[in-house]
Design a protein around this nucleic acid. Structure first.
Lengths: 237, 237
DNA sequence: GAGAAACTCGCACAGTGTTCTAGTCAGCCT
DNA sequence: AGGCTGACTAGAACACTGTGCGAGTTTCTC
């Protein structure tokens, strides 16, 4: 009974490194670079090893499996997210900063949505992020379960919206055209199916009338502001 | 110039099927079954072919690549989502129904988050879903860009929250324990990193004090209600 | 009956994650 | 100094992946 779940985070190095050697940090860093350049499909143990000028199977000394490596990578990324102190910014402004930082992080690492939803994030940096987030919301007056709910809902929204953005970006990139051209293509190509749907037509037309980046910003802000309004209202009950 | 993007949706069968033959529908259906049973990693063309009692490469007559197949699969899944008519339910109730239906669909197909964020959804059923959603929000009085933003924000939140749920479920399943046991494991295992974070400790303790499913429901409802409150307020300006 | 489609599928290729095993190196003990 | 131990490297091999190719079979059309 009570057998412990053995995960990456429980293990640690036993003594000092012997000579000029590989390291987890190094491997994780290289993996992130590879992911940023070539996406999730472009990350293979062999390619990663070549990048590190080592044998492919040497990596397995530092990492149990590829999945474990990805756990490490994800946690590293969580470390890039800013969570301001409540005293400095106040809740609303602080949360906006946090949300935008999280969004920017996802956009910087577009392969993230493909992997974060396959596992809960319980690494040290993810925990630290969660903790600082809870502090921010706690300082605003949220307590007990509302505290968790509020924080979690903001994260869910931001990750969801950013993930959708990333999905579009990657499709555009794969097509090798500009965002605007791509939108046009999609409209044309989906014409047959969209024709029966007047609401969709208008929506697509609206979409192409505006600069794509600005549109995404407004999109993001609309939902975030709405959500925060709603959450804030729950504070006064 | 203006070269069309060639996608799954543009192609169509030329004439009637010849004899007792495979079909796209059949393949897609089998793929979904396989995905539900074994997850994304469990879907391979060979396994799928065996399930259909056919040769592996025969599938390539109906489907250009595995990615195309997944496009078809995703669209099929979008067909499972309910979007009520505005006249029947009204905006708020209708949106709640829609949101819960979308969430339930994701929970029914936990591999979905792993794939939806790698491509925008522009298949016929996804378009139909979007269109009916826009109709629902349009009937409530949203117009122009607010219409798109409101609808998109709700989708982003729901998908984000459901995806996070699914991430936890799959970790629990992989560990082979109950949700409650697993939560305990995680707490114990993350003790070292969590110990410096008092907010996190309380949050985790709170989490284990409540039935997991009920907690997820409350979680989901909190953010959704907040978001809808905020969106609704924007209707009156 | 001939020819053209529609459809099936075995073979092969390059690539994957990972295990196993033999090896090299650095530091410690006697 | 010599040998042992543990830290670390890495090649060979296994079972598996997606998919292009080309040859085969079936059915429809004239």
């Amino acid at each position: 009974m009570g057998l412990m779940v053995d995960s990456i985070w429980t293990r640690s190095r036993a003594s000092a490194p012997a000579r000029d050697t590989l390291s987890r940090e190094q491997i994780v860093k290289a993996a992130i670079e590879l992911l940023d350049q070539e996406g999730l499909a472009g990350l293979s143990m062999r390619k990663l090893a070549t990048k590190l000028a080592s044998g492919a199977t040497s990596l397995y000394w530092y990492v149990q499996t590829k999945d474990d490596l990805i756990d490490l990578v994800i946690d590293e990324i969580y470390g890039e997210v800013d969570v301001p102190e409540a005293e400095l910014a106040g809740w609303r402004a602080g949360t906006l900063l946090f949300a935008h930082s999280l969004r920017a992080t996802v956009l910087r690492h577009p392969w993230l949505p493909e992997v974060i939803y396959t596992r809960p994030s319980i690494g040290p940096k993810a925990v630290s992020l969660g903790s600082r987030g809870l502090a921010l919301f706690g300082a605003a007056g949220f307590t007990s379960r509302d505290l968790d709910y509020a924080m979690g809902s903001v994260m869910a929204y931001v990750l969801g919206q950013a993930s959708a953005e990333v999905a579009m970006h990657s499709a555009v990139k794969k097509s090798g055209r500009t965002v605007e051209e791509w939108t046009g293509d999609v409209m044309e190509q989906a014409k047959a199916t969209v024709d029966d749907h007047p609401e969709m037509q208008e929506s697509l037309r609206r979409r192409s009338a505006l600069d794509a980046a600005q549109l995404q910003n407004e999109y993001f802000a609309f939902g975030l502001d709405s959500l925060l309004d709603g959450i804030e209202a729950r504070l006064r009950t």
